[in-house]
Simulated assay, not measured.
Amino acid sequence: MTENEDCIRKFIDGDAAFLKQLYAKNYFGVEAYILKNSGTKEQARDVFQHGLLVLYTLLKKEKLQISNFDNYLFTVCKNFWIKQSSQNSVTKLNTVTLVDESPDLASFHIEQLQWNLFKEKLESLKETCKTIIKLTLAKVSYAEISKKLKFSNENAARQKAFRCKTKLFKMIQADVRFKKLKNN
């Protein structure tokens, strides 16, 4: 049994020692992320609890392929915070709405699978392409990318980025999982 499989088993079984360790190991990273992104400690606690609940629900319903339990939990919490904070920025209502979260969990699960596919294909690219794509996603200018990666000029960086992104998109679209996710 791998370490991740052991973590998943203990998590689903509600192993108290494991849950305490999981909380100590992961909560403060989630809290730091939320505080850095205009959240409060109370919101961080709520997001972490919601992330645990979502992860538990997904693991009970399906056999997920998780390569790193801690990273997956952080990503669940991060995505939930992004979704929640974007909704709050549109409407600042202090109302409690009772709704069935099942459709939300389904769309969240699909987003997680899409993200996992993207990360997997990104990691299979050559190091230069990975770096360029990560820098462009971080909104680093082509001038800075050109300096950092020692391209002859900004235009060369832009062209290389275009080729790398095109290759990544083709790899994703060629994957069988993409077709299934696209149909959902």
Rank of each mutant, 00 (worst) to 15 (best):
L52C: 04
N71A: 14
I82R: 03
L55E: 01
Q49P: 05
A156D: 13
Y72K: 01
W81Q: 08
C129A: 12
K119E: 03
E101F: 13
Q114K: 14
C129Y: 08
K119A: 05
N88D: 00
S107M: 11
S146H: 01
A106I: 15
F162K: 06
C129G: 04
N68A: 06
T75Y: 02
A143S: 11
F151E: 08
K61Q: 12
E111P: 05
Q173P: 08
S124K: 12
A143W: 03
N79H: 00
N116Y: 07
K60T: 09
E62V: 09
A138C: 00
V140E: 04
W115N: 10
K147S: 12
T91F: 13
Q159D: 01
Q159F: 03
K61T: 09
A174T: 08
K83G: 05
Q65M: 05
K126H: 13
N116L: 07
W81C: 08
L59G: 01
L149W: 07
N155D: 13
T95W: 06
Y56E: 08
F48T: 09
I82C: 02
L125G: 01
K165I: 02
T128R: 14
L113F: 02
L125K: 07
I145M: 11
L122K: 00
K78Q: 04
L52P: 02
T91P: 04
E154C: 12
L64H: 03
N79Q: 00
V96C: 08
S152R: 12
Q87N: 10
I132A: 02
K134E: 06
L53A: 03
T97G: 01
K83D: 09
Y56A: 06
K147Q: 13
K83A: 10
Y142T: 05
F162Y: 05
Q84Y: 12
K148T: 15
V90I: 15
S152F: 10
N88S: 04
A161G: 05
K78S: 03
V140I: 09
K180S: 12
N153F: 09
S85Q: 10
L93E: 15
S152Y: 10
A138F: 07
S102D: 14
L117N: 03
N155R: 15
I110G: 09
L64M: 06
L113R: 12
E127N: 08
T128C: 08
S67E: 14
K121E: 10
K150C: 05
K170H: 15
Q49A: 12
R45Q: 13
N153V: 01
K61H: 09
Q112S: 10
C129S: 12
K160L: 11
T131I: 00
K180H: 11
Q112W: 00
Q173F: 04
E111N: 14
V96A: 06
S89N: 13
S146V: 01
D46N: 10
V96E: 10
E120G: 03
F178G: 02
F80V: 03
K121L: 02
G51I: 02
L181A: 03
R177E: 15
S152V: 14
Q65E: 10
M171Y: 14
I145P: 00
A174P: 03
V90L: 15
S102P: 07
S102N: 14
D104E: 15
A174V: 01
A161H: 07
Q114C: 11
T136Y: 01
T128D: 13
F74A: 06
W115M: 11
K148V: 06
S152N: 13
F69W: 04
L53T: 06
